[in-house]
């Protein structure tokens, strides 16, 4: 049962990865990566049950925290990049 769930989650992750490759905009790719990360958290949790090692849940919690912070950080960067590109560039430094 857990194995089937894990395979299902892997299918979802593969589809998310396909969207990350297809793009077309950078936001599509970040959306796909965010989804991939969420599914990774679930996969780690299910894998912990599959192998009978509940310690994996701690890793899942940590992964959820890191995934969220990482996505927000990349988005901040993209947002700032987009805003600075719209501004007139400084002539020289």
């Amino acid at each position: 049962m857990f194995a089937a769930t894990a395979i299902g989650i892997l299918v979802v992750m593969a589809l998310a990865l396909a969207r990350a490759f297809l793009g077309p905009t950078i936001c599509d790719r970040i959306l796909a990566v965010n989804m991939f990360g969420t599914k990774t958290v679930l996969l780690i949790a299910v894998y912990g049950f599959l192998t009978g090692r509940p310690d994996f849940l701690d890793i899942a919690i940590t992964y959820a925290l890191i995934n969220f912070i990482g996505v927000i950080a990349v988005l901040k960067f993209v947002e700032g990049l987009a805003d600075s590109e719209r501004q007139p560039r400084p002539d020289e430094f």
């Binding site: 905009t25 950078i26 965010n34 927000i72 988005l75 987009a82 719209r86």
Partner: peptide, 18 residues
């Protein structure tokens, strides 16, 4: 966190001009 991430994504998308 998921609504925060979704909102940040949508907002960043408007900033990139999509």
């Amino acid at each position: 966190t998921s609504p925060v991430a979704s909102h940040a994504l949508a907002r960043a998308a408007t900033h990139t001009g999509a």
